[in-house]
């Protein structure tokens, strides 16, 4: 075959990714979220201003794969740590990367107080409704009906109560300037989530206030599902409890 004239339109890794090697499960949505986050930082030209504070979860691995100043902190405490970082470097683009266990369970006080204080940072919450890296237990964000290792017959409101809608709570606080919820279960939603990330990072770096992006991600292992059924389960189950879209853009 003669040499075909072609142009690369997409490379596997984002510019800030040092490696694509990771040990997250097949079909996990987190690595997709990692990449659009790092692409957003590059495309906003924030590489040499970005400081990330990362909680505990399957996503923690990003601190090894990304060429960004990262601090891996205690479970749930990222928004408080990021506050200290931001107050010392007001011109840095400070963000936290956490999971639903890190935010909705362990660190709910931290994220709400930080939002109320209008700290000029961005919190990104990857929400798959389970504690992934401890094997799939229920979190405060697990949806009603969701089977987990600690709700094998499905979360039921009577005994396990209801999921905490963190994005809605953050949006209700005057200190938050932008709140959006996306997902990574198909190419279209991935592109939209990346736009939400860029907007959120841009606004906090510009000092508009606290910004928050929740990204629903697949966890087939934690959902006891074949990998190919992850995207559909996310849409059919999670998106009913967590509607996608921009919840807040500007003062309210």
């Amino acid at each position: 075959m003669t040499e075909v004239a072609q142009k690369k339109v997409a490379s596997a890794l984002a510019p800030l990714q040092l490696s694509g090697e990771h040990h997250l499960c097949p079909g996990c949505g987190h690595p997709v979220a990692w990449r659009i986050l790092l692409e957003a930082i590059s495309e906003l030209g924030l590489e040499q201003r970005a400081i990330g504070v990362v909680g505990h979860g399957c996503y923690t691995n990003i601190v090894q794969l990304a060429d960004i100043d990262f601090l891996q902190c205690l479970h749930g405490r990222a928004p408080a740590v990021a506050t200290g970082v931001k107050r010392v470097h007001p011109d840095a683009a400070v963000f936290t990367l956490q999971g639903d266990g890190d935010v909705a369970s362990e660190g709910l006080a931290e994220v709400l107080h930080t939002a109320a204080r209008a700290e000029r940072i961005t919190t990104i919450m990857l929400n798959n409704g389970v504690f992934g890296d401890t094997g799939g237990q229920m979190t405060a964000a697990s949806v009603v009906g969701q089977r987990t290792k600690t709700s094998l017959d499905g979360r039921d409101a009577e005994t396990h109560g209801h999921p905490v809608p963190v994005a809605e709570l953050v949006a209700a606080l005057a200190g938050s300037a932008y709140v959006a919820r996306g997902s990574v279960n198909n190419a279209g939603s991935i592109a939209k989530s990346k736009r939400y990330l860029k907007r959120a990072l841009e606004l906090s770096a510009a000092g508009a206030g606290f910004t928050f992006v929740e990204i629903l991600t697949m966890c087939p292992t934690g959902w006891f599902l074949p990998t190919a059924e992850g995207p559909g389960y996310l849409e059919g189950t999670f998106e009913q409890t967590y509607p996608l879209g921009v919840l807040k853009d500007g003062p309210r």
Binding site: V4, K7, K8, A10, Q17, H30, V32, R35, A187
Partner: peptide, 20 residues
Amino acid sequence: ACRACRDVCPDYCFEVFRFD
């Protein structure tokens, strides 16, 4: 060359090229 495969892949397996 729509790159959808590349975008959804959690293990970063795809490089996408468009023919001239």
